[in-house]
Design a protein around this nucleic acid. Structure first.
Length: 109
DNA sequence: TCGAATGACAGCG
DNA sequence: CGCTGTCATTCGA
């Protein structure tokens, strides 16, 4: 495994998330063996290589540990609708069965 | 409720 | 080029 940048690892982990599932900044940060929860979102925001640019980074599948969608580049509400189309139950701006749709990147035992 | 920690970027000198 | 402030967050007291 080559020494990838922190952000690069985050993208790779996020790409692993299947459709209809979501993940949290905390899990992503843990996937890269870091605790820079903020850096995960910040790096994405600075690198809009997400689904908007024809990329493969489902930034909209990333939510906060509280189940909140947090903030998104193209509009938080927009992501909520997308997630709902994927099958995720969201109320207002918060995921209901958040833990149920959560995808374990680290597959914690 | 508030502050600290952590990674990256923009602005300023 | 180097430092500071801010940010798509989280945790502990």
């Amino acid at each position: 495994m080559k020494t990838k940048s922190f952000s690069q690892k985050v993208y790779s982990a996020l790409k692993k998330v299947p459709k209809g599932k979501i993940t949290t900044y905390k899990e992503l940060a843990r996937a890269v063996n870091s605790k820079a929860y903020r850096a995960v979102g910040t790096a994405m925001n600075k690198n809009p290589q997400g689904f908007l640019s024809g990329g493969k980074i489902p930034c909209h599948r990333v939510v906060n540990s509280d189940g909140r969608v947090g903030k998104f580049a193209s509009g938080t509400k927009k992501k909520i609708e997308m997630l709902k189309k994927e099958g995720v139950s969201i109320s207002k701006e918060k995921v209901e069965d958040f833990g149920k749709f959560l995808f374990n990147l680290n597959k914690i035992s």
